[in-house]
Design a protein around this nucleic acid. Sequence first.
DNA 1: CAAGATTTAGTTGTATACAATTTAATGGCT
DNA 2: AGCCATTAAATTGTATACAACTAAATCTTG
Lengths: 149, 149
Amino acid sequence: MNTPAANNANELLKLDNQLCFPLYALSRMFTKAYQPYLQALDITYPQYLVLMLLWEHRELTVKELGEKLLLDSGTLTPLLKRMEQRQWLSRRRDPRDERSVIITLLPTGHELQAQACSIPVHLLEKLQLSPTEFETLRTQLQQLLTVLR
Amino acid sequence: MNTPAANNANELLKLDNQLCFPLYALSRMFTKAYQPYLQALDITYPQYLVLMLLWEHRELTVKELGEKLLLDSGTLTPLLKRMEQRQWLSRRRDPRDERSVIITLLPTGHELQAQACSIPVHLLEKLQLSPTEFETLRTQLQQLLTVLR
DNA sequence: CAAGATTTAGTTGTATACAATTTAATGGCT
DNA sequence: AGCCATTAAATTGTATACAACTAAATCTTG
């Protein structure tokens, strides 16, 4: 354990020298930053992600949602059922392929968009990043996401 | 909804135009990338974080762990109890302040370090980032973490 | 066309996260 | 000393995540 190589390995084992921990911590901090705005709409962050996709696409299968959010049915099915209970969306089997379930936004779900569209603006203010910084970071993360996918 | 301002607000509501989603997705993908190596040690990612801190510091209170990991006792207490059951660490009240709980690494917990020190190396390989890219990204995330904290 | 492979959701069980509340101990102040 | 505010963990309840498995529908290939 006292060779330079071992010391280097131990250095790498420190929290501060890793990429993963800041990602993990930042991800949770962002979710908390969203919290007050989401609470006003009575939705959670993953539910907000689903809504964003449905505002853009109107209807999507569970599989498509999973591909876009990188979540599986074990997470999505109960989440979508909760959203169905609140009348934000409907779940129905695809008549042309009974294996698939099509998620469609209901009127109540559409109405949330008007209240939600100020959320990203609020968050941008909280971040205090210049548009350039924001864009650079977003692009880098997006790239890393593509590489790892 | 057809004014330029409203359209811009709707643009911002797309997944691809946000910082938060790539952080959220990347964080989970990283955890999955660690998974095979952590599974070999039979630990979870948050448990690995706790171990890394204890390898570096020997003993820490629950409060100190929470400050470093940005987690509260609601998350840490049950997590630490599970690690205690496996004899990796001990939990005992601080005699000088009975409110605090001191977490100390046990021999079994120390031994895990020898097996764990190859993990960051494996991860670096998976990432395929140049040392410069890695460092730039790490610094940016670290900074963002400091700003938001 | 029939059997086996594949695909899509759903289910089960475990482990986080975290808000909100509770409990116990300590500190500060009169 | 006695009281109140503060602090540190623990507890409770809800909502993700995700591995592993199941069930049903569809596809493929001989």
